[in-house]
Amino acid sequence: MSALQDSGSEVSIAAQQPALTRDEVAHLAHLARLQLTESELDLYREQLDVVLHSVARVSEIATADVEPTTHAVQLVNVYREDVVVPGLEHAAALAAAPATDEGRFRVPQILGEEE
């Protein structure tokens, strides 16, 4: 079971990392647009703490000289020609919409401003 446990002797960010606060969890939930119940907030605070302390050990071996791997395949320059291909029929595009109006997707009032 050692694979996920934070080997205490070695220095890892988990060692220094303070436990997640409930406010941090609430902020994460807001960033992720997840409305959570009070009990969910408590549950995730505990569980995220456990998991984060365990996974933090990756920093033990991730030294500066190691290149990150973002892709398992080493492809570059994959492009599409600038040629129109048929998309969705208007009706098909809107078919699954919870609400539509004037050929557009109808959504509740947007409070925030555009980025």
Binding site: V58, S59, I61, A62, V66, P68, T69
Partner: peptide, 13 residues
Amino acid sequence: DAYYGSAQKVRTL
């Protein structure tokens, strides 16, 4: 860097 970045480096290793 500490999390996602490091994880991608572990991937390399």
